[in-house]
Simulated scan of single mutants.
Amino acid sequence: MTAPYLCPSCKSNRTRFNVIEQVATSIKKDPQTGEVVEEYTADNVSPMHIQYKGPSVRIQCAACGVIEEELSFIKRAEYNQTS
């Protein structure tokens, strides 16, 4: 998070952002009631359950509201410096 950001959508915001920390919880739900039947941990994951592999952090532009992966904001800042 030490790299400069530039919003890939509005292309004007370089200073105001919200950092969204994502924490995935693996669960199994009852299809009729919607109740959580089981909560998986790294030790007891079902063979039919794929673990979350997405980013742990996403960034929101505090000017226009767009939410993207951090790399999108970094790459837009890098591209804008060279052009």
Rank of each mutant, 00 (worst) to 15 (best):
V36W: 05
F73S: 09
A42G: 12
A42R: 09
T82A: 04
K53E: 01
V23N: 08
P47N: 05
Y79N: 15
F17H: 06
E69D: 12
I74F: 09
E70F: 09
R16F: 06
Y79W: 12
E39F: 01
T15W: 00
C10Q: 00
Q22D: 03
S12V: 14
G54L: 07
V66S: 15
E68I: 06
K29M: 10
E69Y: 04
S12D: 14
P47H: 02
I74K: 14
E39H: 07
S46I: 01
H49G: 00
Q32R: 00
C7H: 13
A24K: 01
E38F: 13
A63L: 11
G34D: 09
Y5F: 15
P4W: 03
N13H: 01
T15I: 10
I74M: 05
I74E: 07
E78R: 07
C64Q: 13
G65A: 12
S46Y: 02
I59H: 12
Y40M: 00
V36D: 06
D30E: 03
Y52Q: 08
I27K: 04
S12M: 10
G65L: 14
A62E: 11
G54C: 06
A3M: 13
I67N: 09
K11V: 04
P8M: 10
Q60S: 06
M48S: 01
K11N: 14
E35I: 02
E39C: 00
K28Q: 01
P4K: 14
S56I: 09
S26Q: 08
Q22C: 04
Q22K: 07
V66P: 07
S56T: 10
Q81P: 09
M1Y: 14
T41S: 15
V57F: 15
P55H: 14
C7M: 10
L71Q: 10
Q51N: 05
S72P: 03
A3D: 12
V37D: 12
A24M: 09
I74T: 07
R76K: 12
Y40E: 06
E68F: 07
R14P: 00
